[in-house]
Design a protein around this nucleic acid. Structure first.
Lengths: 207, 207
DNA sequence: AAAAACATGGGACGACGTTCCATACACACT
DNA sequence: AGTGTGTATGGAACGTCGTCCCATGTTTTT
């Protein structure tokens, strides 16, 4: 077989990414294989390796898109109301996003880098970027704290929420349903914020 | 080849469990294979299937032991001092336990059941059992709340801590080191408890 | 001593990720 | 229109995986 040129390289790339995303969305990581992707797009497995280094890199691309999408969603979240209202809205957005396509979200937890390799630096950057909206929304609550303390609190809250959603989207602990997960996350934010106010009473007006 | 009877069935079972635990401890789940286990204990892969249904069931057994060990550790944690001291000690114990053998602990997150199967009921029970010490320690802080509310708070705190340790032991987000993880967990507990006191002021004496 | 029971090793199967290469097609040039 | 060149592609191949199966040879019973 030779050059078909039915699709441009860019089209082929998108074709592969779309098919892979669909598979993970429907079947989870365990339903994914190079041969299955190839079958769905009508190409042979070998072709995937002309476009991507290997499956891990392909998955990293998909994870990156997911993180970007979430970041966009967070940035677009309504910023009106009191700081704690804003924060609760942010966390609500975060949680809702993870529940829209749980198996796809779960990719972030399930997919591990192979033996020697580590996650690229831009991946960490994307993760860090998710912190910014939280950090920002937290600022009015922690006016008398230095930025690093604020960042620490933002990181704590983010890690907690992230961890809880991971539990909720993993099938393993299936009794933590989306509904229960939601109430756990709400409780966490509500109580954590109350704790912050108690530890460093805000001077600004609040709800 | 025939019956060797060098080991009794129970010995063989323990041999397999030990070898598997060691592999996961050292190499993580990705270093595990039936052939590798067999090689280490001087048997053939087929023999594993006389003792265990399949690798998933073997791993479930190991996870169960891990959960039991942690439950024991939590139950043995010093119960003196104020409720918040107790809680912080409990969470500290929990976190320390996960960091002792991070790759083994990570098994709980990495190992997924195959396609149709779900986690057995005793597995859930073991998970729930981990909540009891937290719940108990929380009681004095929430005297005016009903048990279900208390349980909800215990569950929230537990899920948050569990989620954060998962992030910290997964290699993916490797910048969340054990040290940072520890401070995040501490911040979480400290602030969450402060929030609880604010939301439902404790009547009992406290530190 | 013979027979039954059975633990075991080793081979086999299908699926996996990945690599490789002959080939058939698209394109540029005459 | 014909020729040549480059290359995208399909398909085969390799080593690994989980799992299954069964002839074999040892232990236990009769």
């Amino acid at each position: 077989m030779g050059r078909r040129s039915i699709h441009t390289p860019e089209e082929l790339r998108e074709l592969i990414i779309d098919a892979t995303t669909t598979i993970v969305e429907q079947e989870g990581l365990e339903g994914l294989s190079a041969r299955e992707i190839a079958k769905r797009i009508g190409y042979s497995p070998g072709t995937l390796y002309n476009v991507f280094e290997n499956l891990d890199d392909l998955l990293l691309i998909i994870e990156a898109r997911l993180l970007d999408e979430l970041a966009l969603r967070l940035e677009g979240t309504d910023t009106s109301g009191s700081p704690s209202e804003r924060l609760r809205r942010l966390v609500g957005t975060y949680f809702a996003f993870t529940q829209e396509r749980p198996k796809l979200w779960n990719l972030l937890n399930e997919h591990r880098m192979p033996a020697g390799r580590t996650v690229p630096e831009w991946y960490q950057a994307k993760l860090d970027k998710l912190l910014a909206p939280l950090d920002e929304a937290m600022t009015p609550l922690l006016l008398d704290s230095d930025p690093s303390t604020r960042r620490q609190h933002a990181r704590t809250l983010w890690a907690s929420v992230h961890g809880m959603t991971s539990i909720s989207t993993a099938d393993k602990l299936s009794h933590v349903t989306a509904h229960i997960g939601r109430s756990l996350v709400d409780d966490l934010v509500q109580t954590y914020l109350a704790g912050l106010e108690k530890r460093t009473p805000a001077r600004s007006a609040h709800s």
